[in-house]
Computed example of a mutant assay.
Amino acid sequence: MASVGIFSFPAVEGAVPESKLHVAAAQDEVPAIRDLLSKGAAIDAKDDGGRTPLLVATHANKIHAARALIEAGADVNAKDRINDSPYLYAGAHGYLDILKMTLVHGADLRSTNRYGGTALIPAAERGHVETVRVLIEAGVHVDHINNLGWTALLEAIILGNGTDRHRHIVDLLVKANADVNLGDREGVTPLQHARARGYKEIEKILMMAGAR
């Protein structure tokens, strides 16, 4: 066991010297985080996977740890080996509290994940309605196209399930002026995808917005 002041943490196999901070972040131990930082622990040190303590806290949705690290100056855009950052991960997984903190502290809205997508695209796919709303309001480009050739609107339809959450997301994207006629690589439009899947309510939203 590794100990930090009165706190004890399990050893992390193959970890970098600053791994105590990663463990404290994962366990939401704010006093330990502050103690380690006061003693000179590198706030953005990366573990074997390229994850900073803030990204570790974000993975576990540890809001208090994330706040302590962000307020201490942790980089909300620092990426790991698979191109995730605290901002991108929080957006993709609908971790609203952490996402909002990253947005206030310099999140790069143009940054992309390993699929070439912005935070908005996986949020739309996974049905995170409020996350989509927050990202739209923050100014994320609604028509960004990822490596698959899909926009957030296309992913909400193609990879969504047509339920109320995805219908609401389609409505939010349409109201944010997403291009309803921007098709995939084969030229198949959002409306055509919705029809093929029998998503009647989504089809109505798209047609009201001039989709073809």
Score class of each variant (00 low, 15 high):
residue 3 S to C: 11
residue 4 V to K: 01
residue 5 G to I: 08
residue 10 P to H: 05
residue 11 A to L: 13
residue 11 A to I: 12
residue 12 V to P: 01
residue 13 E to V: 13
residue 14 G to R: 08
residue 16 V to P: 03
residue 20 K to V: 05
residue 24 A to Q: 03
residue 25 A to C: 06
residue 33 I to L: 12
residue 35 D to V: 10
residue 37 L to C: 10
residue 37 L to Y: 11
residue 37 L to G: 04
residue 37 L to S: 05
residue 44 D to V: 13
residue 44 D to K: 12
residue 45 A to E: 05
residue 46 K to N: 07
residue 47 D to R: 01
residue 49 G to H: 10
residue 51 R to M: 10
residue 54 L to G: 08
residue 58 T to E: 07
residue 59 H to D: 15
residue 59 H to M: 14
residue 62 K to S: 14
residue 63 I to A: 11
residue 64 H to D: 15
residue 65 A to D: 02
residue 65 A to F: 02
residue 67 R to D: 11
residue 68 A to N: 04
residue 73 G to A: 06
residue 77 N to D: 15
residue 81 R to Y: 15
residue 86 P to Q: 04
residue 87 Y to E: 11
residue 89 Y to G: 03
residue 93 H to S: 11
residue 96 L to D: 10
residue 97 D to I: 08
residue 100 K to E: 09
residue 101 M to G: 01
residue 102 T to L: 06
residue 106 G to D: 05
residue 107 A to M: 09
residue 108 D to H: 12
residue 108 D to F: 10
residue 109 L to T: 09
residue 109 L to F: 12
residue 109 L to H: 05
residue 110 R to A: 15
residue 114 R to M: 11
residue 114 R to S: 11
residue 115 Y to S: 11
residue 119 A to K: 08
residue 134 V to Q: 03
residue 135 L to S: 06
residue 136 I to G: 01
residue 137 E to M: 13
residue 138 A to M: 03
residue 141 H to W: 10
residue 143 D to N: 14
residue 144 H to V: 08
residue 144 H to C: 12
residue 146 N to I: 05
residue 146 N to G: 07
residue 147 N to V: 04
residue 149 G to Y: 01
residue 149 G to C: 08
residue 150 W to N: 09
residue 151 T to W: 00
residue 152 A to H: 05
residue 153 L to P: 00
residue 154 L to P: 00
residue 155 E to Y: 00
residue 156 A to E: 01
residue 157 I to V: 09
residue 159 L to H: 13
residue 160 G to M: 04
residue 160 G to C: 06
residue 163 T to R: 15
residue 169 I to E: 04
residue 169 I to F: 04
residue 170 V to H: 00
residue 171 D to T: 06
residue 172 L to G: 00
residue 174 V to Y: 00
residue 175 K to F: 07
residue 175 K to H: 08
residue 175 K to P: 02
residue 175 K to V: 08
residue 179 D to V: 01
residue 180 V to M: 02
residue 182 L to C: 06
residue 184 D to F: 01
residue 185 R to W: 13
residue 185 R to V: 13
residue 186 E to H: 15
residue 187 G to H: 10
residue 187 G to F: 05
residue 187 G to D: 07
residue 191 L to T: 00
residue 191 L to M: 10
residue 197 R to T: 03
residue 197 R to F: 08
residue 198 G to C: 13
residue 202 I to R: 00
residue 203 E to S: 14
residue 204 K to S: 11
residue 205 I to N: 00
residue 205 I to R: 00
residue 207 M to K: 14
residue 208 M to Q: 14
residue 209 A to K: 01
residue 212 R to P: 12
